[in-house]
Structures are given as structure tokens and as C-alpha cells.
């Protein structure tokens, strides 16, 4: 076997040079140029009944209109919609400057703040039933669920997880009693698993899946989100990074557009259902019943923050008590 220690030049060419090249590329890619002079908002696009005002805002062009109204300098207005799966992805997209505004539950938002994310809540979006369903008729109490049963929910740290922990603390004196029984599943997968009745006994979910499960024979709710929480709470809130919430023009335009979309939903049930039905895979009639007949409320008020903070500090999900001024932008 022949060995050659690389000479000084070859050492540079083979070892140092590629590393330098990578460093240079990394630095260059970090300097993404600003999007010209256009006034832009990038919004995380998410689907579900509870996100209805966002889709109306998009379909009707309310956000573009609101920004155009406020923009006196004649800058062109652009709105981007970016599809993202969950709050972890939202966090990463915000850090990468891909999105300005997104919607999520209060608990994951709080976890982010606790971990140093500079985002804040700029608005509420919706309240809706977030309930725990079981497929075993003999199960009637939370205590009966302890042990072997598997509980599906979107992911650890989600609003469903925190509501379950709240109920567990109240009824069973131990917030984390179910943590070893959790299975992380997306809503549709969780529903499939619950209906098939094989591995999953319980599913903590949100509309429309909670409605579909509610309407299925043999499946009954074991716990309602609101009774776990003890008070009404926002299911979704809008969160934004500093660059956005400190920019009064864009922030106010966004809030206006959202109010307008919520008003539109209240006033035009037929058109709302028609606009949204396809993306939910439901008929316009079903969409209308779900949106208007089953306790989904759209409102910009943020509810339940303090209760979530109290609980999450007490049980160690948060390392410190977050003050309200760290959670919402200063009103100017």
C-alpha cells in the first residue's frame, strides 16, 4: 500500500479549499436580497374548518385590498401563501424569513416564546370543540383510560396534549400520567385508527374530525376541551415575528382583512360554504352545517392565555412565567 502525505499545495487544494468554498457559499446564501420595494406579507396556509377566515381572506383578496388601502406610497402589494404542516415548521419558516404570519394553538406558541422565539400573538382566530373521543363504550371516566389504552393526538406540546394534561391533573392529580400512552398522529390518521378500533382507543381531535367522530355510532366523547380547561379558550391564534408586528401598516391591514373575512362568514353562509367545501372534501351543505350549527366561533379576541401559562409553568412545560407583554405586541 502506498501512502502519500499531501504536500502543502495539495493539502490546500484537497482539504482547506473545499471547506472555504462551503463557508463562502453559506455566507452568500445567508444574504438573500430584500424583495425590492414591494409591500409583502407571507402567510402560512393551513386547512381546516377552524381556519375558515384565512381561506375566505385569500379567496376574496381581502388582505391585498386592505394593504392597498393603507399604502400611500404606491408600492406594489404582494401576498404569499406558504403551506406548512405544524408549529415546528412554522417556527423554522419564520426563522428563515419565509413567513410573517401563521396560526397555531396557544400552548405551542408559548413553548416557542419560552425557547427564545421572538414571536407574539397578534390576533385570535377561532374557538371550537376540541374533544377526546373513545371507541370503547365501557370507558366512561378518564381514570379508566390510564394504563394500556393508546391515545392519538397531533403531537406532544399541542393544544390537545396540554388539555389532556390539564384534565389529568384535575381528575387524577398527575398531569403527565398519559404521556407514555400517547401516539402522535395527524387528525385524519388518528380518526382512521380510532374507527378501525385496533390500536387506538382514544383520539383527541378538532373539527371536522371531532364532528365526524361525534356522529359515528359506538364512539363517544370522554372529555370536552372546555371542561378540561375550565373556561373558553382560543383554539387558534395568529402569531407574527417582530418585523411584522412592529410594522403598523401591515399589522393593521392584516387585522382589518381578518375582521372583514369573519364578518363575511357571518353574513354570507351560502357563499362561504361554497368557497370552502372543496378544500375540506365536504359538500357545501355539510360545510354549512359544520360551520354554523356546531359551536365554531370566529373572533379576534384571544382567550385563555393566562390559564395556559399558569398550568404550563406549574407542570414544567414552561421554564418560567411568561409576562403578557412578552406575548402580545405593544398597542401603539
Amino acid at each position: 500500500m502506498r501512502h502519500h502525505l499531501p504536500g502543502k499545495r495539495t493539502f490546500f487544494v484537497r482539504s482547506v479549499f473545499p471547506v472555504l468554498l462551503i463557508v463562502v457559499i453559506l455566507f452568500l446564501s445567508a444574504c438573500v436580497p430584500d424583495a425590492g420595494k414591494a409591500l409583502t406579507v407571507s402567510v402560512a396556509e393551513q386547512y381546516g374548518l377552524a381556519y375558515a377566515p384565512l381561506q375566505i381572506m385569500r379567496e376574496k383578496g381581502f388582505l391585498e385590498a386592505a394593504m392597498q388601502d393603507r399604502e400611500k406610497g404606491g408600492r406594489p402589494v404582494t401576498v404569499n401563501w406558504v403551506r406548512l404542516a405544524n408549529t415546528s415548521a412554522i417556527r423554522e419558516a419564520m426563522l428563515a424569513n419565509e413567513i410573517d404570519v401563521a396560526f397555531t394553538g396557544i400552548p405551542p406558541f408559548l413553548l416557542g416564546v419560552d425557547q427564545g422565539m421572538p414571536w407574539r400573538m397578534i390576533t385570535g382566530l377561532s374557538r371550537c370543540p376540541v374533544d377526546l373521543y373513545v371507541n370503547d363504550p365501557s370507558l366512561t371516566t378518564l381514570a379508566a383510560l390510564v394504563g394500556k389504552h393508546r391515545i392519538a393526538l397531533p403531537q406532544p406540546g399541542s393544544i390537545q396534549h396540554v388539555l389532556l394534561a390539564m384534565a389529568a391533573e384535575r381528575e387524577l392529580d398527575r398531569a403527565d400520567i398519559f404521556d407514555r400512552q400517547l401516539v402522535s398522529m395527524k387528525h385524519p390518521d388518528g380518526m382512521q385508527a380510532l374507527l378501525s378500533g385496533k390500536d387506538i382507543t382514544a383520539h383527541f381531535t378538532a373539527p371536522p374530525y371531532s364532528f365526524l367522530e361525534e356522529d359515528t355510532a359506538g364512539i363517544h366523547p370522554l372529555l370536552r376541551g372546555e371542561s378540561a380547561m375550565g373556561e373558553p379558550y382560543s383554539f387558534l391564534v395568529g402569531i407574527a415575528e417582530p418585523e411584522f408586528y412592529e410594522d403598523t401598516l401591515r399589522l393593521d391591514a392584516f387585522r382589518d382583512a381578518l375582521e372583514r373575512a369573519i364578518l363575511f362568514i357571518a353574513e354570507n353562509p351560502g357563499e362561504t360554504a361554497r368557497l370552502l367545501a372543496e378544500s375540506y372534501g365536504l359538500t357545501p351543505e355539510e360545510t354549512e352545517t359544520y360551520l354554523y350549527g356546531r359551536d365554531i366561533f370566529f373572533e379576534t379576541e384571544i382567550r385563555g392565555t393566562e390559564t395556559f401559562v399558569d398550568f404550563m409553568v406549574r407542570t414544567g412545560y414552561l421554564q418560567r412565567r411568561l409576562a403578557l407583554r412578552e406575548l402580545v405586541p405593544e398597542e401603539k
Partner: peptide, 24 residues
């Protein structure tokens, strides 16, 4: 993907959980 059931869940679950809790 599969998560912790009746067990610890392994190092993959640890990664998933840390990301979900935004603990980089």
C-alpha cells in the same frame, strides 16, 4: 413516525419530541 408507546420510543422519538417542543 411511530412514537412512544408503552416504551421509551428510542432516539428517533427523542428527536421528534424535542422538535415538537421547539427545543433546538
Amino acid at each position: 413516525i411511530f412514537s412512544a408507546i408503552g416504551s421509551l420510543g428510542g432516539i428517533g422519538w427523542y428527536l421528534f419530541e424535542r422538535r415538537a417542543f421547539m427545543d433546538v
